[in-house]
């Protein structure tokens, strides 16, 4: 029997983690505008946590969610309200708010037991609209559509004041998330998820309780999204319902599709790729395009994202991670290039 991590070199993992934490120092040495790059990387990190959770739900369990921005919003608002209005310490909120968001995951997971494919997509999409509306309606706590100011994260006497501090907070979260998610998918739980994805009937036949595992999947995904939401609320200091749009849910799915559905590293790569593209590449492209026609930034952004998603679905359904695997195998077997095997 093969070991759990037989197919990869574990040696690289500590190196990668060290690289993640050395990156800000490297950036600081290289450029003066490192704070902006750190800000961009922070957004990418928050989205990585969420997309890893979404990938566990959509990529591993095969349940579509078109309303993940709702879980993100619930986590963000819960933590903002608990810390700033309820007086809960941030350290506790970092644990409690994601767990409560996970319970919301169970709420949507329960009707989802009877649904599949497109019906589930529609139900989660409806859930997204309803949550957004509810946040506005509870204006006593959330200040409606005006948005909410949020305090800085504060852990054991240390306050995270700027993007530099936040980077270490967020990327600790990312590393934890990735490690936990990878342990999870290699465990009994992850195998059950994948069995359900591949065939519900067959999974049921070998004794996997569909209802239980689907609920667990929704719960875990909700917890991750809530965790990302807490970090988002406290590091961006301002949250408003405009941000948690249906389009954001779609962007999350673009991230996992571009990264590669059904792989944890894929979700991380996808989030990084899309956020870098959005913040670094698209502004340049927009300036170039603006010499020909006048366009709005949002339109360019959605046009490019739409095109990227479409092209990936048609030409590279396994995403960036799949591409990397192909390249890796290609080099391993270099002189004997088995082109046919990958077509």
């Amino acid at each position: 029997m093969k070991g759990r991590y037989e197919d990869e070199k574990l040696f690289w993992i500590p190196v990668l983690i060290a690289a993640v934490f050395l990156l800000p120092f490297l950036l600081k040495g290289m450029t003066n505008s490192y704070r902006y790059y750190l800000y961009v990387l922070n957004i990418a990190g928050i989205y990585m946590i969420l997309t890893v959770g979404l990938d566990l739900l959509s990529g591993y369990t095969g349940l579509i969610s078109l309303g993940h921005a709702a879980f993100f919003a619930i986590g963000a608002y819960l933590s903002a309200i608990l810390v700033d209005q309820g007086g809960l310490p941030f350290e506790l909120s970092l644990i409690i708010a994601p767990l409560l968001t996970g319970l919301f995951g169970l709420v949507i997971g329960f009707p989802a037991l009877r649904l599949e494919g497109m019906y589930l997509g529609l139900a989660t999409m409806g859930f997204g609209f309803i949550v957004k509306r509810m946040i506005i309606a509870l204006r006593q706590w959330t200040q409606g559509s005006n948005g909410l100011q949020v305090s800085s994260p504060h852990i054991f006497g240390f306050t995270f004041r700027n993007d530099w501090d936040n980077y270490f907070l967020i990327y600790t979260g990312v590393v934890l998330t990735v490690v936990i998610a990878r342990r999870m998918v290699r465990s009994k739980l992850g195998r059950a998820f994948m069995a359900i994805r591949d065939s519900e009937r067959a999974a049921e036949a070998v004794g996997i309780r569909l209802a239980k595992y689907k609920m667990i999947s929704f719960f875990i995904s909700g917890v991750f999204a809530g965790f990302a939401g807490v970090l988002f609320a406290h590091t961006s200091h301002f949250i408003s319902t405009d941000h948690f749009d249906i389009l954001l849910s779609v962007y999350f799915i673009i991230m996992i599709l571009v990264g590669g559905v059904g792989s944890i590293y894929g979700a991380v790569l996808g989030a990084l790729f899309i956020v870098l593209l959005d913040n670094l590449a698209i502004p340049l492209f927009k300036d170039w395009l603006q010499t020909f026609i006048t366009v709005e930034a949002g339109d360019i952004q959605s046009l490019i994202f739409g095109l990227i998603m479409f092209l990936f679905i048609i030409f590279q359904p396994t995403g960036l991670y799949g591409l990397w695997l192909k390249v890796r195998i290609y080099w391993k077997l270099f002189p004997f290039n088995p082109r046919k095997r990958f077509s």
């Binding site: 389009l247 799915i253 673009i254 959605s302 994202f305 739409g306 998603m309 679905i313």
Partner: peptide, 8 residues
């Protein structure tokens, strides 16, 4: 997702 991308 492909039809959603077309709509975007």
């Amino acid at each position: 997702m492909a039809t959603i991308s077309i709509s975007i």
